[in-house]
């Protein structure tokens, strides 16, 4: 196992050799301590990477010659969620930056830049490797939208409407906590990390797509900062006003209620994942955040969590 300091300090070349499980461990290591916003901003300045340094030439060969049609379909089916997800969390974030402390605003500027860079990462991957057509970033997004499943459409749409609500009063603590629950806890803490684990484990075990592996593993390391910021924000909000816990609960009730809908089957077996494994992965991702941060949930939500359907796998 790699030392977690390697995860913290690797440059893009070094990231290619990291094990995704170590990067996921790095995301969670600091959840109990939860660093402050300025510390996270300093870390960003050290860890920022250049998305245009990635080389996708081996990925193109792997995609065309070594992967099967089934593997390509499953890969596009799951990664399209974050092709759109990175854009969504980029464009909906500036409204959140309008509220909170000055330290929070400074940190937020770094996360907005991270998310923009992640959007470019997927734009390059879909354009150069998958071969989707388009002159603009929007064209390529439009080409991949048909592959985005309800698992993503619902939560991303919810975030868009919550951002619109927050725009009316960016300092409203309840609206900020509802928004933060969807953004940091669910989209980043559960959906993004699950997609990372599934696609990056496949790449690593098969030795495929080194450009994707490098870029999305670097993205995962950025995600450590985002999730830690978000959990710190939720924890501090509830400590300041315990009634805000109810806002987290109400948001989770909606997210979990819509989580079971899937209009088509996406077989992830070809990437090495059974529906039951995907289910356990998502539950585990959610539990780790809730317990490490000390967010208590009532029995009805616990019940909803245990019923999480592995619709990422279409089951």
């Amino acid at each position: 196992m790699t030392e977690l300091t390697d995860v913290a300090e690797s440059d893009l070349r070094g990231i290619r050799d990291l094990d995704i499980d170590d990067v996921l461990a790095y995301v969670h290591r600091d959840l109990k301590r939860l660093p402050g916003y300025t510390e996270l901003y300093k870390r960003y300045l050290r860890q920022r990477w250049d998305v245009y340094e990635l080389d996708f030439s081996q990925d193109v060969a792997d995609w065309r010659e070594r992967m099967t049609q089934e593997e390509r379909d499953a890969f596009v089916g799951i990664s399209a969620g974050f092709h759109h997800g990175e854009r969504q969390v980029e464009v909906e974030l500036p409204v959140f930056m309008l509220g909170g402390s000055e330290e929070s605003k400074i940190y937020m500027s770094s996360q907005i830049e991270d998310e923009a860079r992640h959007t470019v990462f997927f734009d390059r991957f879909y354009r150069e490797v998958v071969g989707m057509p388009g002159d603009s970033v929007q064209d390529v997004l439009d080409a991949s939208f048909e592959h985005v499943s309800e698992t993503f459409v619902g939560p991303f749409g919810l975030l868009a409407y919550q951002a619109d609500e927050l725009r009316k009063d960016p300092e409203d603590p309840a609206a900020r906590v509802r928004y933060g629950t969807t953004y940091f806890l669910w989209i980043e803490g559960v959906l993004a990390l699950s997609v990372m684990k599934i696609t990056l484990t496949y790449c690593r075990e098969r030795g495929f797509l080194p450009g994707y592996y490098t870029g999305f593993t670097a993205t995962c390391r950025d995600e450590a900062r985002h999730v830690q910021f978000g959990m710190r924000f939720l924890r501090d909000s509830v400590q300041e006003d315990p009634r805000l816990l109810l806002q987290i609960h109400e948001t989770l009730r909606t997210i979990l209620a819509i989580n079971g809908a899937a209009s088509r089957r996406l077989a992830l077996e070809s990437l090495g994942w059974t529906p039951e494994e995907v289910r356990r992965l998502m539950i585990r991702q959610l539990h780790m955040k809730l317990t490490d941060v000390g967010i208590a949930i009532p029995p009805d939500i616990r019940e909803m969590v245990s019923r999480i359907e592995p619709e990422l796998a279409g089951g």
Binding site: V153, G154, L158, Y161, D164, E165, R253, T254, A257, I258
Partner: peptide, 23 residues
């Protein structure tokens, strides 16, 4: 997609309750 891109804006109403039946 129209919903995800917020092309149809919710001018009034509870966001969470609205999304509970989103599909």
């Amino acid at each position: 997609r129209v919903v995800m891109y917020r092309q149809l804006r919710l001018e009034r109403g509870d966001v969470l309750a609205f999304f509970r039946v989103i599909y």
